[in-house]
Design a protein around this nucleic acid. Sequence first.
RNA 1: GGAGGGAUCGCAUAGAGGCCUAGUGCGCGAGCCUGGAAAGUUCGUUUCCGCGUAAGCGGAUCGGGGGUUCGAAUCCCCCUCCCUCCGCCA
Length: 425
Amino acid sequence: MLDIKFIRENSDLVKNAVKVKKLENTVDIDEVLRLDKSYGDILKRVEDHRGLKNELSNTISKLTGEEREKLIVEATGVKGELEILEAKLKGTKTKLDEMLLWVPNPQAVDVPVGNGEEDNVSLRKEGKIPTFDFKVKNHLELGINLGIIDTERGAKIGGFRGYFLKNDGVDLEKALLNYATDLIKSKGFDFYTVPWMVKPQYLVGTGYFPWGEEDHYKNQDGMGLIGTAEVSLTSYYAGEVLEEKDLPIKLAGISSCFRREIGSYGKDTRGIFRVHQFMKVEQVVLLPEGEELSREWHERMLGYSEEFLKNLGLSYQILLMCSADMGAGQRKKYDIETWFPSQNKYRETHSDSYFLDFQSRRLNIKYKDSKGKLKYVSTLNNTVAATPRLMAAVLENYQQKDGSIKVPKVLQKYMGKKLIKAKKN
RNA sequence: GGAGGGAUCGCAUAGAGGCCUAGUGCGCGAGCCUGGAAAGUUCGUUUCCGCGUAAGCGGAUCGGGGGUUCGAAUCCCCCUCCCUCCGCCA
């Protein structure tokens, strides 16, 4: 959420953000400004009436007899007028608040303006793309042959995009997540497990709602299933006031993640690349205000993910996302795409964003600065590792001619083996 | 699922229709005192919105939302969360 004052003073900037983020059919900034003006006018009248009412009540308490009765009649009249005005005020406020939830965060100055995926900018490519002297198999074929992935029965039991991991498949997933956990802990992050089901207000607070409501599951109690631990971790301090000396707060966590993948029916339907339920280790950082500091951390967090991929020996590219391909609340976003040999291209495995105070305003997370002034924290989040997609990348990049999988060096101690091969019957 | 008890200023507590403009203690800040400190002492100390250069003034705010009343921290209804006990359960 943006400060209404900011919207008033920078309406052209905000209107432009609506345009380049392709959100014109969701919010009209002129309408927001009109409602804001109207709200201000009504509020003034309501406050005047309340002042009068308070004054009358105070006087009444000091009077007796006829004078008292007379004033009570007058106060009753004021009360009636006030009730009408207050109803109007409330209606306007409700509408305004609802609209403000849809106002996007303008993108940072160095974000390319674009129309979609095709306008994202590849900043650099890292690592050597592996070459194979045999026909490469995709991760599903490899997984089925090794007996470590079963999507057929996964779909039977779990529906479309359902999957089972089995034996070494489970161990490989755990190894990736455990390595990710150890790496991010070594960077000084506190490590949490988190609620996977959250109140909708925290999905609104982190900016997933209202835009992404369709992509989330809800249960019969109205709770939402998180699509990422970012939701719970960023919300951890919701409604609280932090001390500046305690910042930055560096949180990481592991959770299952649930996504309906509503906009991607036909995409990536084979294998365990795009699934409704997956595991992820995520990092969240809370900072004092100031864009430079956020940008510094944005790069630093990207570095942690790169370190993770480099140590795994995977090649990847860094994408700077264009305006149309980033979230409404994000100032700037990098995706990391990891090389998938069977697809002969890089595919998204990581996402790194900063928000300034967009989330913290919605979540009401403040801190007291050195002068005792209350300010909103700046938030960032980034993927450390998401499985089974990343596991698919490992399978494909480390496949051998005989269909076995070499275990990346850093994972060997977690797996307790150097090679994944088919179980003999 | 059932039965009770709670939620008040940073923390702890008082408060039971108008003496609440929310008291007191602790903490915190400033001053006085002191060679310096401690102790003592005086004043200040929720947050948000509006007007104002400012001092200040007005409005809201006692978990949240409704209601009763001229007037609600206080009475009524609904909700959320926390605690105790019973049942069930990994």
